[in-house]
Nucleic acid binder design. Structure first.
Length: 284
DNA sequence: ACCCGTGTTCGCTG
DNA sequence: TCAGCGAACACGGG
């Protein structure tokens, strides 16, 4: 169930495992057709024999770029992990991990598995090898880690929205990569009540929120690095659950005390069908 | 059995 | 026309 920090870890590990390697074979597993829809498993044929040239991430999306043949004609593999998608690194002879949907055999004796229990994730073969060349990704907003967050631009967008600020932050066209956890965490860092209409935020509050989004993502990534999930020894391009201890300040902490000196007890509410965690005392 | 789930998309409604 | 909402997708885990 990845957001930007988890997908960033996945991108780093995939680079380490795959860049420079040639894809010897691509093997659809159980329910591969669901992951690969609408194109279906036949689309994978375009990747056989190709060499991996890079891995890009924008928001929660990964683009593995490859080059085919002598001319090096570029082709991309666009991956979105959905709720339970994972990239796994295994020896070629190892048995397929649980929920493996597609196996990519590399030329170094290893294999990459795309595993996905709930099948909300997607793999798509796309022409070209850059994110800018994928039309379906054109509507994504700026990536907070790569591009930063422009407070003035954010303020102009939020001014038109009546939805609660926390719900607005989940829109990938506003900012790419903020998910349900980071939205709660950022509102807490900015001391903003997640239930307030997005348009009600004062400029100074949008400024705090812009900084909070970047800070929360960097903090989460740093915690993952401490856990070692992005280390050379990691064999999963993801962050295993459950995370112990919970690395977040408010998410998943209903009933616990807010970490702030002037905080109260963290509450859980539901907004647009999703859980929101916040401190009613320090978030106004 | 029942409720919950780090995501996205579609259809309905006002 | 569109913002906003709930359901759907699919399958465990507590």
């Amino acid at each position: 169930m990845p957001e930007l920090p988890e997908v960033e870890v996945a991108a780093r590990n995939l680079r380490r495992w795959a860049v420079g390697r040639r894809v010897r074979a691509v093997e659809p597993g159980p329910s591969a057709a669901v992951v690969l829809r609408p194109a279906g498993p036949r689309a994978l044929g375009a990747l056989g024999g190709a060499r991996v040239t890079g891995v890009e991430r924008v928001g929660k999306n990964l683009l593995v770029s490859l080059a085919r043949g002598r001319a090096g004609a570029p082709v991309g593999l666009w991956s979105h992990l959905g709720m339970t998608g994972k990239w796994l690194h295994r020896k070629r002879a190892d048995p397929a991990p649980r929920f493996s949907r597609v196996r990519f055999v590399l030329d170094d004796g290893c294999a990459l598995h795309y595993a996905d229990m709930r099948l909300f994730g997607r793999l798509r073969v796309v022409p070209g090898a850059r994110f800018g060349e994928v039309p379906d990704l054109a509507a994504l907003g700026p990536d907070p880690l790569r591009d930063g967050v422009d407070a003035r631009r954010l303020r102009a967008r939020l001014a038109k929205l009546r939805v609660p600020i926390k719900v607005a932050l989940l829109d990938q066209g506003l900012l790419a990569g903020v998910g349900n956890i980071q939205a709660s965490e950022a509102c807490h860092r900015a001391r903003i009540d997640p239930r307030r209409p997005a348009s009600s935020l004062a400029p100074v509050e949008v400024g705090r929120l812009a900084r909070a989004i970047v800070a929360s993502i960097r903090y989460t990534l740093a915690r993952f690095e401490e856990e070692g999930v992005a280390s050379d020894r990691a064999d999963i391009a993801y962050v295993e659950e459950p995370r112990t201890p919970n690395p977040f300040l408010v998410y998943g902490r209903a009933g616990e005390r807010c970490p702030r000196r002037d905080g109260g007890v963290i509450q859980r509410v539901v907004q647009a069908g999703r859980a929101t965690f916040f401190c009613p005392k320090c978030q106004r």
